[in-house]
Simulated assay, not measured.
Amino acid sequence: MDKYEAFEKLKEYSNRLTEVTYEEIYDLLKNGIKFIPLPLAKLRVNTNIDRVRPNKGDKLFTHIDELGYIKDKEVIEKHLTSFGRANIPHQVMFYGAVETSLIDKQRLTAIAETSHLFRNPGNDCEEGELYTVSRWETQKELIVVEVVFSEYALENNPEIAQSFEKQKRFLEEHNLEPQDLEFHLEFLKFISNEFSKKVTNPEDYKISAAYTNLALLHPEVSGIMYPSVQTEYFGVNVVLTPEAIEKNVIPKICSTQILYKRGMKSFIANGQYYCKDIDIRRDIDWKEHSSDLLSTKEEVEEHLK
């Protein structure tokens, strides 16, 4: 089977992912298509990444380890059992969001990607749902794979369109034969659409998870970046390996946020607590916001009208 036949088979697999195993997809990518294209990009030093965890009721998290990637072996074994967009079951990854010109507060992207209220549009929460946002900062330049060939994202996000043109130029500079260039472009569009599709079944993440894991075989790659589905591709997500976080990323601040939702209207407000200086050697030192930084019931109601 050559790469063209393998690609056609992969497209056929994408229509019945509940029937095809992850191992079959991974093998088809690795040994059928073989040399998968990896559009590389740089995550610069001092890039801020926001990560979100839902709180259990009003209970606050006590240590930054609870806000980073999952370390509890029991949780990994018993609860991390589904495919994610960039992970297989029981595989730990660090998911977060970075700033874009369309969504300058990346915590909005991170909350939208984490909240079940956004994933299930019919759900309301007028009393508010509590989340904790932690901000992490890169300490060195990291190389990531950039997923920017999605037709959906290209229509909605001009920054993604610029990245697409840049990556397309990089491909063209390799002086590929026209047939190979067309193959690479079509393959990257297909993979990008897999990252950009809205899913109801975690099994539908098998192809994007397999592509991520193959990309991570590259010795310089620390993770992957892709447009945020839940923000209609205005925001951008980044996924990094635990090793990359431990070596190159540090936590800086965290705060509580409250998500209110009624119908198609939503409002994210400051929660009561924040910590502006995280020390990994001790528990989070929570402080209370002054009342003028908190939203009143009337203000919330006004936003949800």
Results as ranks from 00 to 15, higher is better:
residue 248 N to A: 13
residue 292 D to T: 01
residue 10 L to V: 02
residue 119 R to K: 15
residue 279 D to P: 08
residue 283 D to H: 02
residue 108 L to E: 11
residue 29 L to N: 07
residue 235 G to A: 02
residue 179 Q to R: 06
residue 299 E to F: 05
residue 49 I to D: 10
residue 225 M to W: 01
residue 20 V to S: 03
residue 156 N to G: 04
residue 134 S to I: 14
residue 49 I to A: 05
residue 272 Q to R: 12
residue 10 L to M: 06
residue 26 Y to P: 00
residue 280 I to W: 12
residue 36 I to M: 12
residue 245 I to Y: 04
residue 111 I to S: 09
residue 230 Q to W: 06
residue 161 A to D: 13
residue 236 V to F: 01
residue 140 K to G: 08
residue 259 L to Y: 09
residue 98 V to Q: 06
residue 51 R to A: 09
residue 58 D to R: 11
residue 298 E to W: 01
residue 14 S to R: 03
residue 90 H to W: 07
residue 19 E to P: 08
residue 225 M to L: 10
residue 148 V to D: 14
residue 58 D to I: 09
residue 130 L to N: 15
residue 255 S to V: 05
residue 229 V to S: 10
residue 217 L to P: 07
residue 111 I to V: 11
residue 182 E to D: 15
residue 100 T to D: 05
residue 35 F to S: 09
residue 174 H to K: 15
residue 107 R to A: 12
residue 188 L to I: 09
residue 279 D to A: 01
residue 288 E to T: 10
residue 200 T to S: 14
residue 209 A to E: 09
residue 175 N to L: 13
residue 196 S to Q: 02
residue 66 E to D: 07
residue 79 H to G: 01
residue 277 D to E: 12
residue 230 Q to N: 07
residue 117 L to E: 04
residue 228 S to I: 02
residue 184 H to M: 13
residue 232 E to H: 11
residue 141 E to V: 04
residue 264 M to Q: 11
residue 213 N to Q: 03
residue 220 E to M: 13
residue 143 I to P: 05
residue 55 N to Q: 15
residue 220 E to Q: 13
residue 135 R to V: 09
residue 4 Y to V: 11
residue 214 L to A: 08
residue 192 S to L: 07
residue 122 G to D: 12
residue 196 S to K: 00
residue 244 A to M: 07
residue 29 L to W: 07
residue 128 G to Q: 13
residue 127 E to V: 07
residue 275 C to V: 08
residue 302 E to M: 13
residue 196 S to P: 02
residue 13 Y to C: 01
residue 18 T to R: 08
residue 40 L to W: 10
residue 237 N to M: 02
residue 291 S to F: 12
residue 143 I to H: 02
residue 73 K to H: 06
residue 243 E to F: 00
residue 171 L to I: 13
residue 247 K to E: 14
residue 183 F to E: 11
residue 242 P to R: 03
residue 198 K to D: 12
residue 305 K to A: 07
residue 201 N to V: 09
residue 2 D to P: 01
residue 125 C to R: 14
residue 19 E to M: 08
residue 72 D to A: 02
residue 295 S to M: 03
residue 69 Y to N: 10
residue 304 L to Q: 08
residue 260 Y to F: 15
residue 151 E to Q: 03
